[in-house]
Every structure is written in structure tokens, then in C-alpha cells.
């Protein structure tokens, strides 16, 4: 079980259809530990439906989000008054890299350098991570010869 979930008696799990299997496993695991779990499956994660769901939860609940595009629901949950550490995002998600030059977020497979989809800069992800963007900051890669001559 995820670290930090132990303290909740009730947990809301939101998932898209694609990750339902995973969410079900999480539900069972939590239920085995005596927690009550409300599971909500959407075809795809929808911010408006998500907002309605999270805002009407009783106080003191944990929130777990699975799926593609968790960020929208995470942000409405924070606006609805969740403490940021009451929200848990599926950690197996793809890595996101925030281009420091054009702000575009590129999904990357590894920690190696990559080309920004939007501005085509060659970038390198850093350890500077934003939970607001759910992305790592990526810096341009310089070659030794840059700027010389």
C-alpha cells in the first residue's frame, strides 16, 4: 500500500476506464486493511465530474487518482480544500518534462536528453520537480562550442 494512506478510514478512488484494473486492485488492498473505499470509474478523467465528486466528500478522506490527465482533478481537489498530501497520484505514470524555454510539457521515457516537441530545443531533465505541473524542469543542453567564435 502507498505510504501515507494508513491514516485514512475512508478513501475515494477515481480512475479512467483504462486503469480500472489497477484501481480495483488498490480498492481490494485498502478494503483488506479495513478501509472503506468509494471507487469511481469514468470513461476518461473529466474535470467537471471530478470536481463534483471531490467537493462533496466528507472531511478527512484520502483521494487516489489513476489515469491519464490526473492533473486537472488534482487541481480542483486542492481548490476544494484538500491538503496536498491527502492526494495520491498513481506513481507509475509516465514522466513529464517541463521545457524551460517554451513551457511545453513533453512525455519522456527516460532521464536522458530529448527534443522538446514544441520548440525543438535539445533538453535534459533535472531533479527539480513541480507537484503543481507534475513535471521535472528540463534545461537546454549546451555544446562546448556554443557561443565560441
Amino acid at each position: 500500500m502507498k505510504e501515507g494512506l494508513e491514516k485514512y478510514r475512508h478513501v475515494l478512488v477515481i480512475t479512467d476506464k483504462k486503469h480500472e484494473e489497477k484501481a480495483l486492485r488498490m480498492q481490494r488492498e485498502l478494503q483488506n486493511r479495513g478501509k472503506s473505499v468509494q471507487l469511481e470509474v469514468m470513461a476518461s478523467l473529466d474535470v467537471l465530474i471530478g470536481k463534483e465528486l471531490v467537493s462533496n466528500q466528507p472531511i478527512g478522506r484520502g483521494l487516489i487518482i489513476f489515469g491519464e490527465g490526473t492533473l486537472g482533478i488534482e487541481r480542483v481537489a486542492v481548490s476544494a480544500g484538500y491538503s496536498r498530501d491527502d492526494i495520491f497520484i498513481d506513481s507509475s505514470q509516465e514522466s513529464r518534462a517541463f521545457c524551460s524555454q517554451c513551457h511545453h510539457i513533453t512525455i519522456i521515457g527516460s532521464d536522458e536528453s530529448f527534443i522538446c516537441e514544441n520548440c525543438l530545443q535539445q533538453l535534459e531533465p533535472s531533479e527539480h520537480y513541480s507537484t503543481y505541473h507534475r513535471a521535472s524542469l528540463a534545461y537546454p543542453v549546451f555544446k562546448e562550442t556554443d557561443g565560441k567564435g
Binding site: 471531490v54 467537493s55 462533496n56 466528500q57 466528507p58 472531511i59 478527512g60 478522506r61 476544494a80 480544500g81 484538500y82
Partner: peptide, 8 residues
């Protein structure tokens, strides 16, 4: 009792 998230 019966309070929603976001209550302080």
C-alpha cells in the same frame, strides 16, 4: 458532524 472537505 457531516462536514465536507474544505471545512476549517
Amino acid at each position: 458532524r457531516n462536514r465536507k472537505v474544505g471545512t476549517h
